[in-house]
Amino acid sequence: MTATTISTGQLRRHVPVVRGLSWVTWRQHRLAIASVCAVLAAAGLLMVVEGLAMHHAFTRLGLNTCGRLGGPSCQSQLSVFQQRYQPFADQLPHYLMLLPGLIGVFVGAPLVARELESGTFRFAWTQARSRVQWIITKLVLLAAVLTALTLAFSALFTWWYGPFDAITGRMTPNGAYEISGIVFAARTLFGFALGALLGLLIRRTVPAMAATAAAWVAVVVPSSTWLRPLIRQPITAMGHPGKGVIAASHVPFNANVIHNWVQNAAGHHVSFELIEQQVIAANRGTPPPLDQFNAWMTQHHISQWVSYQPNNWFWHYQTIEATGYAALAVLLAVATVVILRRRAI
């Protein structure tokens, strides 16, 4: 009896009591946090269920023991595996990559907009804690929670995508790049801070949510399309088609092949059909045998090229891109605090 009382007392002393602005943040945003958890957990559950089956199939087919995955000894098992699992692996990330934007829309945009819209800011900001303390606490705590949740989700995704990391890699544009690593979390923070600022400026919850969604897409899509390729020049590899050496043989199996082309001695890109026509024309209108065709290509210095990003560039890209989004998020958060402090509400 006494022992129970003591242990309960000790337990109570050891449970950290959330107080002050932290409690206010928790009480006001627990529903939003719970919703984010629920959505991530639902997607996570799907990945666990499908992932266990996929990982099992990978070992059952012997893809972990057959040698080089791109080699001939794995080819037939690999095509069975890809036929069964590749479509879903290429599809799921395309939906998941919208989640950071949605989190920004549903957690970030209402943060200040809801207070302004309902008039409760007059209640919240006239207590003994200043509105600067209020907004900083909320931004920091919610950002920390969102970072933890999204990083955990990215880790789970990385496990799930594991088999395909060896097959298609994570630099391929199937969306896996956007979910695994740290870009997912950084984009969530960006969306959250963007929502908070737009909510403060627009002062209405629903329009602020719409604006956040639009602005998030308007930043994320162009930056992944145009800015990301600037991070590092892709590697180019050359092949001599005349000697039967194709450029692709230099490229790792799970690399992201960006471009594949043929060029002449002057360095101009030419189509293979054009070369064929020229060879036929040189042979008085009839298609020549293969060795004659190859000799013609060697003689005319026809070369074949491929440009690619190897899979092990993944973290280099992720670090730079995530730093960019995190810096934007900090900038937006600071702007929110400064405007909130100065603005005549």
């Binding site: 007059r122 209640f123 207590q127």
Partner: peptide, 13 residues
């Protein structure tokens, strides 16, 4: 802030 309590119009809660 510490010394003033404010009850705003329409008592927003």
């Amino acid at each position: 802030l510490d010394g003033i309590a404010f009850v705003a119009q329409d008592t927003p809660l």
